[in-house]
Computed example of a mutant assay.
Amino acid sequence: MTIDAAPSFPSPRRRAGARKRRRLALLAVVGVVLAAATALILNAFSDTLVFFRTPSEIAARAEAPGARLRLGGLVKQGSVRHEGTTTHFVVTDMKSELPVTFTGLLPDLFREGQGVVTEGSVGQDGVFRADSVLAKHDENYMPKDVADRLKAQGEWRPETGGAAPK
């Protein structure tokens, strides 16, 4: 038996080129995986994100019915009406008003003329259906976002809403 030629090994240049291609392919795969993970995380956050709005902003924007948001403002004097466990009231920012319906137990400190933040969605009929209601919890508190927006609109009344926000 004769040996015709010595076994051929790839040149060092070929081996280096193959390694670079493998490394590049690995980086491309890692980049695609990271992009997919980022997209999934951002999608999950957007599903749970709830925006804060005043009645004037909701009237101006025409929010999509069913979109989750937080409504903040003052409970209008003389607007609270109870029907069993359902409470109907109006939230105002002194420029616009929005009727609210809430079924459940209200916080003990919920009352007319005080700051309130409700979370829920606006229905087809224009009524905000709240599934949670937060009321001020001491004499010197109003949600900062609500107080800031009332101050910006020139409607801040510390005698009804507590101390001015910092």
Rank of each mutant, 00 (worst) to 15 (best):
P55R: 05
A5E: 09
R13Y: 10
L105Q: 05
A16I: 12
P99K: 05
G126M: 10
T103P: 11
G154Y: 12
V100D: 04
E119K: 15
T38Y: 09
L24Y: 05
A164E: 07
A28P: 08
V32T: 15
G104L: 05
S46Y: 08
V50G: 01
L74C: 09
L134W: 11
G31S: 13
K20H: 04
P107Q: 06
A28I: 15
L105P: 09
L134S: 09
I3G: 00
L49H: 02
V33G: 00
G84W: 06
A37D: 11
S96K: 10
P7K: 02
L134I: 13
H137S: 02
A62Y: 07
D4S: 07
K166S: 06
Q114R: 09
T92R: 06
L42R: 13
P158I: 06
A28N: 06
G161D: 12
P107F: 07
D145T: 12
K76R: 14
L34E: 11
R13W: 06
V33L: 07
A6E: 13
S8D: 12
L49M: 03
P10C: 13
V116G: 03
A18D: 00
L98N: 00
D93E: 03
A163R: 15
F89G: 03
A147N: 05
K144S: 09
G73E: 07
V117A: 03
S56P: 08
S121H: 10
A25Y: 04
R129S: 01
V91S: 01
E139K: 14
R22F: 11
V50D: 00
D125E: 08
A44G: 04
A16L: 07
R68C: 04
T101V: 09
K151H: 06
V75L: 12
E155D: 05
E63W: 10
V30Q: 00
L49A: 02
K136L: 13
A18H: 03
R19S: 12
F102E: 02
G84K: 06
T92A: 01
F51H: 04
